[in-house]
């Protein structure tokens, strides 16, 4: 399983109620279902992925996070997970607020546009960066709102959203992001993993 999913799973308490938004083919959900909590469901936009989730025995609703989160009552989940998708929404701010309305906590992961490889690409090649975490070209990327870890931390701070856990992932290396090392982690992290409360 992806290191990212291992970290997300480690943040979740046993038997809590979880919604995985953009759950893809259900890999993370299946792991959580079998190891942490039976009370998990997913929301997924791709029909093919929904089929794969059903094959795995997962409870999934086909839908669009930007339109369909509204149907869930306030605080109806302990955790709402959003893995590497925030940047692809038309209105990420609205989605983030919806996550925090529906869930007591949100776990959001962000591909870091501030990573040094991304910066080098742009600085020396002068082309839009294509990396392992950002594999698409500028013309076919689904990512409308790329941000850096620093951008995201600032964004949350300005809105009084509490970052209760901030984790950096670089390759297999896991470390905490703190105020004191933010600039450094913003350069070295491929992925930021945040637990957020309102």
């Amino acid at each position: 399983m992806k290191q990212e999913f291992k970290i997300i799973s480690s943040l979740i308490n046993e038997n809590s109620k979880i919604l995985d938004v953009g759950c893809g083919n259900g890999e993370l959900m299946k792991y959580i279902l079998e190891n942490i909590s039976k009370n998990i469901r997913g929301l997924e936009i791709s029909k093919k992925n929904v089929q794969e989730c059903i094959e795995k025995g997962l409870t999934v609703i086909e839908g669009n996070a930007e339109l369909d989160l509204g149907q869930f009552p306030d605080k109806s989940f302990n955790y709402v997970i959003l893995s590497q998708t925030l940047q692809a929404f038309l209105n990420p701010e609205k989605v983030l607020y919806e996550l925090l309305r529906v869930g007591k906590k949100a776990i959001v992961t962000i591909p870091n546009f501030g990573h040094w490889k991304v910066r080098v690409d742009l600085l020396f090649k002068g082309t839009m960066p294509v990396t392992e975490n950002l594999p698409n070209e500028w013309y076919n990327t689904p990512n409308l709102h790329m941000c850096t870890i620093k951008d995201f931390v600032t964004f949350c701070n300005q809105r009084d959203l509490k970052l209760t856990k901030s984790i950096s992932l670089s390759g297999k290396k896991v470390s905490y992001i703190k105020k004191s090392n933010l600039n450094y982690k913003n350069l070295t992290s491929e992925l930021g993993i945040f637990e957020i409360e309102k």
Partner: peptide, 18 residues
């Protein structure tokens, strides 16, 4: 129907088949 079930936290899956 899905929305009504989600509103009460029922266990519901949904798919639209092409």
């Amino acid at each position: 129907i899905v929305i009504a079930l989600n509103a009460i936290g029922a266990d519901v899956g949904f798919i639209e088949i092409t």
